[in-house]
Design a protein around this nucleic acid. Structure first.
Lengths: 168, 168
DNA sequence: GTAATATGTCAATATGGCTGACATAAAAAT
DNA sequence: ATTTTTATGTCAGCCATATTGACATATTAC
């Protein structure tokens, strides 16, 4: 286990096509994201929920009063996909709906106390992981990290997303 | 569409619990990864394959001669999950197997010419996105970006992964 | 009053994970 | 030489999450 090598023993030394630093960066993001999501995933698995539940809990928790259309745009899923999971969260009493005051067609979403607790439970290990990485890498690295991430977002969505994240 | 606000209109100003910069960083990673995977996903969708196919093509392409056990460890999936997708790639002639010379139980994996072409087609837009983000953010930012990503990886796997990525 | 919007829901389908069980060939250990 | 372990494959079934398409309701906008 400790001495497994990823290097293919019979790999020819000549090595293919794409600029290697970009390939490395792509793989690094893959691995980092894999582990980044692993913390809540583990808890979710034991609780009988999935990653989709966490995403909803996170965004409803971070943006109380968010409506369904906004949530759909953020998650980039269909309302049917959202509906299935959201319905469970409502039934389980993690999320509650209130009609919008300006537009009574809208269902504004809020976490209940129970939802807040569960969300915190899911997010805490993930936050700790990020905090630890930030501390280890140092503030300059963090600034660079955030800058690159912003530029990975679709140019057409970038401003919208960044403004949204920084609200509050 | 252009003027959708993510800010919940009725959000109370008091705002809950977690350190906000960490929450922002978590969301930023979510959005960046969402868009980072969207390029190949679009092509895959039109080709009738899925993200799982891309992951295998990527790692077999990057590490020719990788064996099944190594691939499983990297992807963190079961052999049954891998098997279903790998079988398709073999049948379609994107990947080929050769028995290991040292250990003839092993099936070493290689891309065929067809596989290399398809992999390149999938990866090119993703590479361009990363390259563009790196250029826009600048070299110092990239260094910080990579540093933080490394520290997001599980400590127990970190050295293994980083060594692997930086191989030959 | 009619049209558009926000939301919900039913049904069918696909993908990609999972567990458990079992099979084969080759290497390693005794 | 025999037994055990390892590397791989495969069958079957289950679950979570996504999709498309169709349709229903309430409310707002024209």
């Amino acid at each position: 286990m400790a001495d497994i090598k990823i290097f293919a023993a019979e790999t020819p030394p000549e090595m293919a096509g794409e600029p290697d630093d970009i390939r490395q960066a792509i793989e690094l993001l893959f691995f980092a994201y894999r582990d980044f999501t692993s913390d809540p995933d583990l808890i979710l698995l034991r609780s009988g929920y999935g990653r989709a539940h966490h995403r909803i809990l996170h965004f409803v928790g971070a943006y109380p009063g968010i409506n369904v259309a906004q949530l759909l745009r953020i998650l980039r899923i269909t309302k049917q996909s959202l509906g299935r999971v959201l319905k469970q969260l409502l039934k389980q009493g993690f999320v509650e709906q209130r009609p919008g005051k300006r537009d009574r067609r809208q269902r504004l979403l809020f976490l209940t106390e129970k939802g807040r607790k569960f969300e915190a439970q899911l997010s805490t290990p993930q936050q700790k992981r990020v905090q630890q990485a930030f501390t280890a890498a140092g503030p300059d690295a963090v600034a660079g990290y955030l800058k690159v991430l912003e530029h990975l977002i679709d140019e057409t969505e970038r401003k919208f997303i960044i403004d949204a994240i920084k609200r509050g």
